[in-house]
Simulated assay, not measured.
Amino acid sequence: MPRYELFYDHACPMCRFEMLRLKQRDSKQCFTLIDISAADFDASTAAASLPEMQTLLHIRRDDGQILVGIDAIAAIYEAIGRDWWTGPLKWQATRGISAWIYSRIARHRYRISVWLGFTARCDSKSCRI
């Protein structure tokens, strides 16, 4: 089983909720969460430049492979055994629209977090809506 470093924006309530939820489902303990919004984050050892990682989710596998956006999402859900719902991210017929939708969600994640009612009711292990 590959191990993954997930470079995510902990300052985004929706992102934080999702990453902590995924970490809770990580029974094989193959994820390491790396907060790109942390004051002590060192972008020089990261998967990509900070501006790139602020645009789309980036993950780095233990073999060095970097996955971005919908490819990263599909890999994460496959790792926790929930790849059944990621088909549209991989299917040729829906891949383009899936990537477009995800890029818009990622770009407007702070506004969407507020609109969906995500708040800062999170601690280091879990979030509650």
Rank of each mutant, 00 (worst) to 15 (best):
Y4M: 14
Y4W: 14
H10N: 15
M14L: 14
F17I: 00
E18C: 02
L20C: 09
L22P: 01
Q24N: 10
Q24V: 00
D26P: 04
K28N: 14
K28I: 05
F31E: 12
F31L: 15
L33M: 13
L33K: 09
L33W: 13
I34D: 02
I36D: 01
A38S: 12
A38D: 13
A39M: 12
F41L: 04
D42K: 11
D42P: 03
D42L: 09
A43L: 04
T45E: 12
E52I: 00
I59V: 11
R61Y: 10
Q65K: 15
I66C: 02
V68K: 04
G69S: 12
A74K: 02
A75L: 04
A79H: 08
R82D: 09
D83Y: 11
D83Q: 12
W84F: 13
T86C: 13
T86R: 08
T86K: 10
T86G: 09
G87T: 12
G87Y: 08
P88D: 06
L89H: 07
L89W: 09
Q92N: 09
Q92V: 09
R95P: 01
G96S: 13
I101D: 00
S103I: 04
R104L: 10
R107S: 06
I112N: 06
W115T: 13
L116G: 05
A120C: 01
R121D: 15
R121E: 15
S126K: 10
R128Q: 15
R128I: 13
